[in-house]
C-alpha cells in the first residue's frame, strides 16, 4: 500500500516536472516560461525527496528555486519591453536542431548513467547516519579539493559579474 502511494506521488511530481518543462519551451509568453521553469525546479526537488536525497532536495529548492529561478524571472521581467509580453517568446525555426541536440544530450547522460557500475550507487560510508552528515564528511575529506576549486571559481565569477555590472571605467 505504501509503495502504491509513493509510486502515485512520484507519478504526480514526475508529470508536473515534465509538463512544466514542456510549457517552458512551448509557452508564448516568456515570463510564463520563466515561471514554469521555477515550477520545474520545484518538481525536481520533490523528485529528489522521493529518492531519499533530502539534502539535495533542499539545496535544489534553495539554490535553484530560491536564487536561480528568481534571477531568471527577474531578468526576463525587467528586460521585457512593456506591451508585448503576450507574444514575447520567439518562435524558434530551429526546432529540429534543438530536438536533435536535446536527444543527444539525453542519450549521453543515459549512457553515462547506465555504463557506471553499479549505476545505483549508494554511499555506505554513513559516518553520521544522516545524508547531510555523509555529504559534509565527503566534502571535507575526499572531495575537499574540488570543493575549494568550485569555491574559487564562484568567487571569480562573482568578481566578473560585479565588473560587468559596474563597468571597468567606473571602477578605476
Amino acid at each position: 500500500m505504501g509503495d502504491i502511494a509513493s509510486g502515485l506521488i512520484f507519478l504526480v511530481f514526475a508529470l508536473l516536472t515534465v509538463f512544466s518543462a514542456y510549457l517552458v519551451v512551448s509557452s508564448k509568453n516568456i515570463v510564463h516560461s520563466a515561471l514554469f521553469l521555477a515550477l520545474t525546479f520545484v518538481g525536481v526537488a520533490a523528485l529528489y525527496v522521493l529518492m531519499n536525497a533530502d539534502f539535495l532536495a533542499a539545496v535544489q529548492l534553495l539554490v535553484y528555486g530560491g536564487a536561480v529561478a528568481i534571477m531568471i524571472v527577474f531578468g526576463v521581467m525587467l528586460t521585457l519591453r512593456s506591451g508585448n509580453a503576450q507574444n514575447s517568446n520567439l518562435d524558434s525555426r530551429n526546432a529540429l536542431a534543438g530536438a536533435i541536440v536535446s536527444l543527444l544530450t539525453f542519450a549521453t547522460l543515459g549512457l553515462v548513467v547506465f555504463t557506471t557500475e553499479p549505476w545505483r550507487k549508494t554511499v555506505d560510508l554513513s559516518a553520521t547516519g544522516t545524508t547531510t552528515g555523509d555529504i559534509s564528511w565527503l566534502m571535507l575529506t575526499k572531495y575537499v579539493v574540488p570543493f575549494e576549486v568550485a569555491a574559487v571559481l564562484l568567487l571569480v565569477a562573482m568578481v566578473g559579474a560585479i565588473i560587468l555590472a559596474k563597468g571597468v571605467n567606473d571602477s578605476k
Binding site: V31, A58, V59, L62, G65, A69, M77
Partner: peptide, 25 residues
C-alpha cells in the same frame, strides 16, 4: 520531524520571493 529541519525552513522560505515578484509583475 525532519533531519533537515532548519535547512528545510530556509529552503522553502527562499521560494517565497517568487510569488511576490510574480504578483508585482
Amino acid at each position: 520531524d525532519l533531519d533537515l529541519g532548519i535547512f528545510y525552513i530556509l529552503a522553502i522560505s527562499a521560494l517565497s520571493v517568487l510569488p511576490v515578484v510574480t504578483a508585482g509583475w
